[in-house]
Design a protein around this nucleic acid. Structure first.
Lengths: 233, 233
DNA sequence: ATATATTTGTGTTTTAGAACATAGTTCTAT
DNA sequence: ATAGAACTATGTTCTAAAACACAAATATAT
């Protein structure tokens, strides 16, 4: 496991959801066991087939959860933004990781041993329901994603990804540029298409004046139209 | 909501997982609130956009969970066998159903109000972890499914579905015939392909002596080869 | 700073699988 | 028992997207 530096961070403000549900004793235990780890851009956070040990909470940065499929072709399964939890599903399922995680950009992650979390939630209905709700929401998204990725055409899938990125990471100060710096290849892996198709379709969107591109910076010009392209597939 | 007849059933033997984790008082409450409902072949159990109210446990029969996508094209998301729970995800996510469920064949379903289940698991760590684990396993399957459905070719997807059906519902007495009676259209909706392609590919498998077909009855002749087709995609 | 690798962009070719057409077959309902 | 509907089968055509090929532009390492 890479990453090194240890910081002093106020967990009560950075782990808002979980912190709120704990007793004072549990909070002490948490403080004693949580570790803050930094990851550099493109550094791997965990790998497929590894044994899950920690609940991870992304404090800063952007993370992709991905999976390698037929012939090693990579598919981005979901992306994480601050402050979201990840890395816990496989532990709860009593399985090794079936996905891998890596840092899109420099990241700060809080790691909490899953044994501790499991122990907490066994006696804390609110915390249990917090995880049940997160898993339930993610499962609904995954079900929707199966349909979108298999039934929509390239244009629809790319449009959907752009909207998804905008809603996940927001816009820069200009109110139009999507606040993430992604290679065409990542955009393709997110949208289940080849890199060529991502590039080509992006160019088409530019010609249609739906977006503009400046290197990797993508500016949304006509969001309504983009949403329409996504909707009709 | 259709279905009508009420039966006397021994819940302790039909709800083994949950029953085991409850106190005597909770068991009484469960007995007082559980309803047994029958569904005829092809009858709808719940619909997309409805409000989820009950945890459902399939006692007898086969159920498909499906979703309609672009242009109303249907995709089977998962299938349920006895004794499995379903219908609870949307309630926990505080959403309306994003899928629909219908009976592949005549079914017996036990319905338990979700409020009761939520109340139980707030004070019962084992029960909470039971749901957390089910959701976690299903989410892992969904993640895997995204990759399989998008990256494998028609042959690989159909081979995978046949193996999946065999593992879900088992074989008949001859030790080869898959124990489910499915229309080609359902097989197609399960494997993300058109009905024509399911028919054609099934014929190819017959010519290659991997399976034999007799109407809707599918017999697996060469499981190793079928698995290989599924694996290489 | 310069070389090397990686990413981006575009044109061309190939192909898997959808769409369509039509006919035979099997259910299902009255 | 029979008519109509739904399902199965197969051939043909069409098209979206993958695969391939190469050039230009950026990024990265020495």
């Amino acid at each position: 496991m890479p990453g090194k530096k240890k910081d002093l961070i106020d967990l009560s403000s950075t782990l808002p959801d979980i912190w709120r549900m704990l007793t004072d004793g549990e909070r002490d235990q948490l403080r004693g066991n949580a570790r803050i780890i930094h990851f550099k851009k493109n550094e791997l956070i965990y790998l497929e087939d590894e044994t899950p040990r920690d609940l991870m909470c992304l404090f800063k940065g952007k993370v992709k959860i991905f999976k390698s499929g037929v012939g090693g072709r990579s598919q981005i399964i979901r992306i994480i933004r601050p402050v979201q939890y990840f890395g816990y599903r496989a532990y709860f399922a009593r399985e090794p990781y079936v996905t891998a995680a890596s840092a899109f950009e420099s990241c700060t992650v809080c790691m909490i041993p899953m044994e501790l979390i499991e122990q907490f939630l066994r006696n804390n209905g609110d915390l249990a329901l917090f995880f049940i709700q997160m898993l339930s929401v993610d499962l609904g998204i995954a079900d929707q994603r199966v349909v979108n990725l298999t039934q929509k055409h390239v244009r629809g899938r790319l449009a959907e990804s752009l909207i998804f990125l905008k809603e996940s990471y927001g816009l820069e100060e200009d109110g139009a540029t999507i606040n993430i710096y992604l290679a065409r290849e990542d955009l393709a892996n997110l949208s289940n298409m080849t890199t060529s198709n991502a590039i080509r379709t992006l160019s088409n969107f530019v010609n249609e004046r739906v977006i503009t591109i400046d290197g990797r910076k993508i500016k949304i010009i006509d969001e309504d139209r983009l949403r329409k392209i996504s909707r009709i597939g």
